[in-house]
C-alpha cells in the first residue's frame, strides 16, 4: 500500500499530488477517529483476549486459555443458543413484515405520508423507552396482550416471567422496530422501473407473477442489505434483555453480549470477556461472509450483465 502510494506520488503530476493530499486530508478526521476509537480498541481487545486481566491489579498471559474455558462453559453455550434463536427468528420475521408493510405503503393509499410516518416512528424512539413500554404490554395481569387474549377467554402466559415465553416475548417485541427496514424496501420498490411492470402486463402476468418475477428479483439488493445489517444487529442484541429481563428468568434471555457484559463488568474479567467478544465477532463475520457468498446466486444487480 505504502509502496503503491509512493509510486503514484513519484509518477503523478503536481496537480495529481495536490489532489491526493486533498483527498487524504479530507479522509484524515475519519481515519483518526476510526484508528483511535474503533480499530485501536479492537486490536487491544484482541490482545487482551490472550490475557487473564481485570485491567486494575493483574494482567498475565494465558495464551488460548480464555477461549478454551469459554467453550467449556455451559453458560456460554446457553447464551450462544439464545442469540442464534433470536437472530434466526427475528431477521426473517422482521424482514418479511417490513417487506409486506412496504408493499402496502407503495400503493396509492389515502394519507400515505401519515402511514409511512407512523410505521417509521418507533424506529426513532430510544431502545430503553421501547423496552419500558413493552414491559407494560407484556404485563401478565394488566398488560395489553393478555387483556386482549382474555376477551376470547384465553389466559395469556406469564411472558417475561416464564423461561418458556421470555425469549419469544423479546422476538415479538423486535417486530416493533421494522420501520427502518420498511423504509429501505420502500425506496427499493420505488426504484423499480415501471416499464418492467408494463412489459409483464403485456405478457399477461397477474399480480402474483409480477411480484415474483419482477418485484422480488429487482428488490434482492435491498433484501440483501437489510438482512445483512439486521443479522449483524440481531447477533448483538443487548438492551432489551438488559432492561427487561436481566437475562432471566433462568438465563432464558441471556444474549451473548449480555453474557460478555456480565463477565467484564460484574466479574471484572476483561480478558475472558474480550475472548467472548471475539468469538461473537467471528460468528458475525462468518455468517456475513456466507451470506455475501450466497448472494452471487440470488441477488440481481441491474446493469451487471451489461458490464
Amino acid at each position: 500500500m505504502a509502496l503503491r502510494l509512493a509510486k503514484r506520488w513519484r509518477l503523478g503530476s503536481s496537480q495529481k499530488r495536490q489532489d491526493l493530499i486533498t483527498a487524504y486530508l479530507c479522509l484524515l478526521p475519519w481515519m483518526v477517529g476510526f484508528l483511535s476509537f474503533v480499530f485501536g480498541p479492537m486490536l487491544f481487545s484482541l490482545g487482551l483476549s490472550f490475557f487473564e486481566s481485570d485491567l486494575l491489579t493483574r494482567t498475565f498471559f494465558v495464551g488460548l486459555d480464555n477461549y478454551r474455558d469459554l467453550f467449556r462453559e455451559d453458560l456460554f453455550w446457553k447464551s450462544l443458543r439464545v442469540t442464534f434463536i433470536y437472530a434466526f427468528t427475528t431477521v426473517p420475521l422482521g424482514s418479511s413484515i417490513a417487506l409486506l408493510i412496504a408493499l402496502a405503503l407503495n400503493q396509492k393509499l389515502l394519507g400515505l405520508g401519515v402511514w409511512r410516518t407512523i410505521y417509521y416512528l418507533p424506529t426513532v424512539i430510544s431502545g430503553v423507552a421501547v423496552s419500558l413500554l413493552w414491559l407494560q404490554i407484556f404485563n401478565p395481569r394488566a398488560g395489553l396482550i393478555n387483556n386482549f387474549l382474555a376477551i376470547f377467554g384465553v389466559q395469556g402466559p406469564s411472558w417475561l416471567y416464564s423461561s418458556t415465553w421470555a425469549l419469544p416475548s423479546l422476538i415479538i417485541m423486535s417486530v416493533w422496530g421494522v420501520g427502518a427496514n420498511m423504509l429501505l424496501y420502500l425506496a427499493g420498490l420505488q426504484g423499480i422501473p415501471t416499464h418492467l411492470y408494463e412489459a409483464a402486463t403485456i405478457d399477461g402476468a397477474n399480480n402474483w407473477r409480477k411480484f415474483w418475477h419482477v418485484t422480488l428479483p429487482m428488490l434482492t439488493p435491498t433484501i440483501f442489505f437489510n438482512v445483512t445489517i439486521s443479522l449483524i444487529g440481531a447477533f448483538q442484541f443487548f438492551t432489551q434483555a438488559f432492561i427487561m429481563t436481566q437475562g432471566g428468568p433462568n438465563n432464558a434471555t441471556l444474549s451473548m453480549v449480555l453474557f460478555l457484559y456480565r463477565k467484564a463488568f460484574l466479574q471484572i474479567r476483561f480478558g475472558y470477556a474480550s475472548a467472548a467478544a471475539w468469538v461473537l465477532f467471528a460468528i458475525i463475520i462468518a455468517f456475513t461472509l456466507l451470506f455475501q457468498y450466497s448472494s452471487r446466486r440470488w441477488v440481481y444487480y441491474e446493469g451487471e450483465t451489461a458490464r
Partner: peptide
C-alpha cells in the same frame, strides 16, 4: 466472589420463586 455466586444462584432462585 459475589457476582460469581449470583450467576449460579439467581437463575436457580428464579426457577423456584419466579416460575
Amino acid at each position: 466472589f459475589q457476582s460469581v455466586a449470583e450467576e449460579l444462584l439467581i437463575p436457580a432462585m428464579e426457577r423456584i420463586y419466579v416460575e
